[in-house]
Amino acid sequence: MDKPLYKGEEIKKLLNQRAPILMVDTLYEVSDNGATTGLTIEADNFFNLDGQFTEPGLIEHMAQSASAFVGYNAIKSNSSAAPVGYIGEIKNFKLAGRLPKAGDKLLTTVTVQSVVMNITLFTAETKTGDTTVASCQMKLSV
């Protein structure tokens, strides 16, 4: 992939969450209707249990991946600050195989299906390498 759009400390411009629950560390690419994000799972990640990155962590990472896309667009189009996003609904979350572990790098693709009023409906898929870890459909309220 080319040089990431946002990485490290810069990500804080796109997201309102902070430690210990900031769950995206890189915004790689953005398209008209989606984005690709990443997270390297540190050993002391808030959502780790026995060295594994748990399901709530995956869901939070997917939700913040969509928030990062919304935040990116907010900054680009109106130069306003990234809005605070809340998960409104999760549908069809599936844990594909085993949980990722500390040290793994997650790569997530979010695709917007619809935006109605202040709610974004999107699908998300998270992989480590070529392996799908989890997927879901989610509604984000901003």
């Binding site: 409104g88 109605v116 009023m117 202040n118 709610i119 409906l121 509604k139 309220s141």
Partner: peptide
């Protein structure tokens, strides 16, 4: 508001 999104989709 959440299910309104489903209607539009």
């Amino acid at each position: 508001s959440l299910s309104l999104v489903d209607l539009v989709a």
